[in-house]
Design a protein around this nucleic acid. Sequence first.
DNA 1: GTCTATACCTGGATAGAC
DNA 2: GTCTATCCAGGTATAGAC
Lengths: 194, 194
Amino acid sequence: MTKETTRERIITVADNLFYEQGFDHTSFADIAGEISISRGNFYHHFKTKDQILEAVIELRLKNTLAMIKEWEAASPCAKERIKSYITILDRNKDKIAKHGCPVGTLTSELAKLSHDAQGLANKIFSLFDEWLQIQFRDIGLHDEAALLSQHVLARSQGIATLYNTFQSDTFLKKEISLLLEWLEETCSTTTANH
Amino acid sequence: MTKETTRERIITVADNLFYEQGFDHTSFADIAGEISISRGNFYHHFKTKDQILEAVIELRLKNTLAMIKEWEAASPCAKERIKSYITILDRNKDKIAKHGCPVGTLTSELAKLSHDAQGLANKIFSLFDEWLQIQFRDIGLHDEAALLSQHVLARSQGIATLYNTFQSDTFLKKEISLLLEWLEETCSTTTANH
DNA sequence: GTCTATACCTGGATAGAC
DNA sequence: GTCTATCCAGGTATAGAC
């Protein structure tokens, strides 16, 4: 484990602050304050704030990919892998209660800002989407894979948004189990089709 | 139809801009520009920007209530009324594609800003929530009303977020019909319980 | 690579004339 | 009730010393 470079530290802290406070509302001073660096020093590593955003999204893409690979390593069963995705809602519940879903809230914010990096941020969504599609196809649901994947994404997003608003644990628990039930049903329908 | 006062014009324009660009990212200059008023003149009507936000949320609460009353007037059947809620996703699809759900994106933004008006904004959600609960109880689903209502809210939110990101019409159409199917099933389950 | 100093702009907010 | 002029804080970005 080599020492983190200043550039990496900036990205890590920016990643958290963008999630906690939003991109637009996070200033250089905020980031500089957290890592005890002068504001001027920023521009040695990044020319603009947008470049920091890009680097943060790249990091998120990398981390997302790593998480997906972990799920794949943890289980060879596609259904189990999809479960891993669904249950992040429970594993990350504290952060979601405070700041919502990191993917959904960023894309929503950038959409409103008409920001150039919007397309890049959407790629995080696409990464989950394409991976979920592969899992559904693996289960045998070839034609419906795209719509099933987006169904899971949409359900998770909605659960995250409502949990962020009301922070009801009964709601969260119930919705996760409903989504897992849906998964079981969807899979069993297919095995019947075999 | 009396002439709109300047105060009302400010609120109306702010309502749109907060939706389109976000609250934090909308400046007095933006609002002033749209209605051809000087920035200084603002402070005759509102002491702070936060007060404009409050007025905007109050307006949204009023408009939401009016919409709900329309749905009630349009049909005495609770199931049909819930359908009216679900199908706003289709009726407002163009705006959702561009700016997301006005309720969900505002609450998410204010949550990140730790803004005082967060509680007030959540009331718009609560308004829908309580109304949907009444409809489900009317159908006979007394005990489950709260969770069913939040289920509908979460599903709609998720659909809005994903449509905002990917703008897939096949997705939107499919998800709306799935949610309507779910509604039919949920209602028919109950009549069986009677 | 890191710092200080500083330029420049935007945004919210105020004072006071009309 | 509306305007202009202005203040001040905070934001991004640059220059240049160390």
